[in-house]
Amino acid sequence: LAVIDEQHRFGVEQRESLRGKALSGKAPHLLIMTATPIPRTAAMTWFGDLDISWLTELPGGRKPIRTFVVPEADGPLMGSMFAHIRRRIDAGERAYVVCARIDDADEAGEGDVLDEAMATESAQSARNGAVLSPRPLHTVVQIADRLAKLPQFQGVRFATLTGRDDDATKQQVMAGFASGETPILVATTVIEVGVDVPQASCIVVFDADRFGLSQLHQLRGRVGRGGTSSWAFLVSQAEPGSLGEQRLAVIRDTTDGSTIAEEDLRLRGAGDVLGDAQSGGKSSLKLLRVVKDAELIVDARERAEALLAEDPELMGEVELSGAVLDFTRGNETYLTGS
């Protein structure tokens, strides 16, 4: 038996290597778990590679997290958000602030940052005669310095946490955050999993329109773990009517991980369900679209299962047997064959 928790944190090849660990050479039973299936995995469930069980209720004692999209250009609204966070801190609670990059030297950033979304919107703006320059992502260093100077946080201590910090530093920082010594933690997505501070009631994500939906859902799950009311603030610079605005509306309007995964699949693409491209991008499927043709795929799966139950070796289906053999040899031309 192989169990993979937080499976979206693993690459396709990493997960496959875990399946090959059995000394017998046989594939073990496999259980993978996540709050938000990545698009590729959602697509694979429809193709029969995985059986799926949904746990749709919140864990005991938790309350739904209230989620708000905050335009960064709206100064009064940003100020109200910071004032709200200060009130929660004064009540003995904690707040996370998340940024994609560590500092100006961190070009790639940490986490599921959607550079292709910015590229798409830039292309759309160019066609409309506008010029949209790529904007840099906010950094932990920049935001920590900016927030510390705000009057709303006068007298409040901040801590920072990134993927560059060693384990000892991470433990020390998280201990200070949990105790309330540093009640505001400015961090990268390093806090996405494995962090459980019941007193945390607020999370702010800067450049939220540039993150993947699944990761935003995971980050939101860092709060609301102590039975208190909780809030998630998605700070955005997305243009009205843009893809980024549409994506944030999904997170704002639902806390259902399965719905979020479906929308991520619809908006970003399924990845290469027959290969190892994990999210969005190109697919090797020539005729099918895993969202539009979901009912057709389910019907085909049921028919295939019935056929194999009657004729496991496909002795009576010569052409189909040949197509399967082609596929196992890496020849996918049958996908567009008549």
Rank of each mutant, 00 (worst) to 15 (best):
E110L: 14
E107W: 03
R135N: 08
V113N: 03
L132W: 04
A105K: 10
A130D: 13
L114K: 02
R135G: 06
P134A: 15
L137S: 02
L132Y: 03
H138E: 11
T120F: 13
M118A: 11
R127P: 01
A130P: 00
A119V: 09
L132N: 03
P136R: 10
N128M: 14
G129S: 06
A108T: 09
P134M: 15
A119P: 01
S133T: 13
G109E: 01
V131H: 13
G129F: 04
V131G: 10
P134D: 15
D112C: 05
H138D: 09
V113H: 01
D112K: 03
D104K: 11
S125K: 03
D115F: 11
L132K: 03
R127M: 10
D106Y: 01
T120L: 14
D106G: 08
V131M: 14
L137Q: 00
E116R: 01
E116N: 04
M118S: 07
A108V: 08
D112G: 02
T120A: 13
V113L: 13
E121W: 01
S133A: 15
V113Y: 00
A117G: 07
A117K: 03
M118G: 04
S125Y: 06
G111D: 03
T139C: 06
L137E: 05
P136V: 04
T120D: 14
E121Y: 00
G111V: 02
A126R: 10
T120K: 07
M118L: 07
L114P: 00
L137N: 00
E116H: 07
D106M: 06
D104C: 06
T139F: 05
P134L: 15
L132C: 00
V113W: 00
M118I: 07
Q124G: 04
L137I: 05
D106C: 07
D106N: 09
L132E: 06
G111Q: 05
D115W: 12
L114D: 05
A126F: 10
E110F: 09
A130Y: 09
P136W: 03
D104M: 14
S133W: 13
S122P: 04
L114G: 02
S125N: 07
V131E: 13
E107M: 07
E121R: 01
A105V: 08
Q124N: 03
A117W: 06
P136F: 06
A108W: 01
G129V: 08
M118P: 00
G111I: 02
N128V: 05
E116M: 06
L137D: 03
A130L: 12
A108M: 09
Q124F: 08
T139E: 00
A105I: 03
S122W: 11
D115Y: 09
G111A: 05
A123E: 10
S125A: 15
H138G: 09
R127D: 12
A126N: 06
L132G: 00
E107Y: 04
D115A: 04
M118H: 02
A123L: 09
G129L: 04
L132F: 08
S122F: 15
D104F: 06
